[in-house]
Design a protein around this nucleic acid. Structure first.
Lengths: 249, 249
DNA sequence: CATCGCTGCTGGTCTAGTCCACTTGACAAC
DNA sequence: GTTGTCAAGTGGACTAGACCAGCAGCGATG
């Protein structure tokens, strides 16, 4: 079960085995997981390590704790993937074949507002990448992306028709998206968008203004995604509602 | 500084003092916070406790760690409040005076699909509460809410024109919203919505289908919020992008 | 029969350490 | 000057305990 000489921390390994066990045993919402003390003894680790494993599951919204009673499986999420994450990954998970048609792909000088977001000088080059996103050949979104060439030098020489942008960012540059932030609004589709998305004029579209950061909050990309309103509802994911630090006094 | 006999855990107290210190000293994005060992010695606690304090800040996206270097302040969020949280709270934070006009307020028998969401029997009573939400007297949203009367008995006898729904839920019932999940779409406003929101016909609106859960994933409410597309962009909050548990092998 | 209290379980918090991985800067050797 | 090495400081992982707080079941006591 547990490999003490692996680079993967023990608590992650334990979290993985719990997930596997849950799937194998067909456990569902509300059922109880092993106690922290049981897990510790089972895997011959200290209780804190077992607790860290369960922390991982709680962080993901897979399980929840009740003091005095135990740890239980959470209600499953509506969907796995999030509208805030990689478009390609989400489509793959949902069983579609993602692809792209590039509308624009060029270095541009950063405008003042873009430069401020990227924390670079105005006029510094930024990669502008506008794409129509397709699922099984059907257009499902238009994306207007600005990418940080300081963080991703020579990114403009990559090919994005064939491969996922995030895959390139992770694989070639070892840059890992860790945080995302978004604002949403609705508006009517522009004429160009109607053509790209193959929708009638006057239709409502959902626009997501998304920022993606590294662990250290360097801005990787700023994207405006335009979705036809009804064809593709966007799942925001499961989020913990944080109480203020100074409440509960 | 630290009160060892308070009911508030020491690590929370330390997290609070860090936030206060940061504000008092005017520290900004990128500046370094005290090391875990420093914090531990400063407050005369073990290193784990100091670490837990920083964990709180990292969980909130206030700080981030870099192994071998230290802990640093994160880039501030676009906005504080989230479109997934309490409408009233968000408006208050942004300096508006929230109010409501009730369109519908009655017990209804749960339809099959609603009952399934709430995990109750079909036909069991649910509180349907439809409101026009106002900011400084201006209509900014229409909300169609279904509330769980099993969790919140006799909620239908409360007054919601004057007070925040979440305030009642927290104060009177001791039910704390802990998780939220949402899907978003865009469509054209209905005639009734145009009247309520005082917008021209044919305008695009943003629709958020939101579920709010307790810590134990009991469904508190299911809400469809309709926002005029451009008047009020919805902030989704800052979210961690989770890597799969079985990656990084 | 109802109730109170005990006991044994759970998670929540905390201690005082250990060793490892990584970053940085200083300093010595080339 | 460049390069390599070493030490100090950082967060990451882990141990082996401790006590507290909340829940549930059981049994004795009224």
């Amino acid at each position: 079960m547990i490999n003490r000489h692996s680079f993967v921390p023990i608590y992650v390994q334990i979290a993985q085995t719990i997930v596997q066990t849950v799937q194998a045993d067909g456990l569902t919402y509300g059922e109880q997981l092993p106690s922290e003390r049981d897990l510790a003894e089972q895997h011959q680790v200290s209780r804190l390590t077992a607790r860290q494993a369960i922390d991982e599951l709680v962080k993901r919204g897979v399980a929840y704790r009740v003091q005095g009673k135990g740890t239980f499986l959470a209600r499953p999420q509506i969907r796995q993937a999030s509208g805030l994450m990689s478009f390609s990954d989400e489509l793959l998970q949902r069983g579609f074949q993602p692809s792209s048609k590039i509308i624009l792909h060029q270095r541009v000088d950063a405008s003042k507002s873009v430069a401020q977001r990227f924390q670079i000088a105005a006029g510094d080059p930024v990669l502008q990448l506008n794409r129509v996103r397709l699922a099984n050949g059907q257009p499902v979104a238009v994306e207007y992306a600005s990418l940080n060439l300081h963080l991703l030098p020579n990114l403009d020489q990559e090919d994005f028709e064939g491969q996922s942008l995030f895959a390139v960012i992770r694989g070639r540059y070892n840059v890992y998206p860790a945080w995302a932030e978004a604002e949403m609004e609705a508006r009517l589709a522009t004429d160009a968008e109607c053509k790209w998305l193959d929708i009638p004029t006057g239709q409502a579209v959902l626009v997501a203004h998304r920022l993606t950061f590294t662990e250290a909050f360097e801005l990787i990309e700023a994207v405006d995604s335009v979705y036809p309103g009804d064809r593709f509802p966007i799942y925001i994911g499961r989020q913990r509602i944080l109480t203020e630090l100074d409440e509960k006094a």
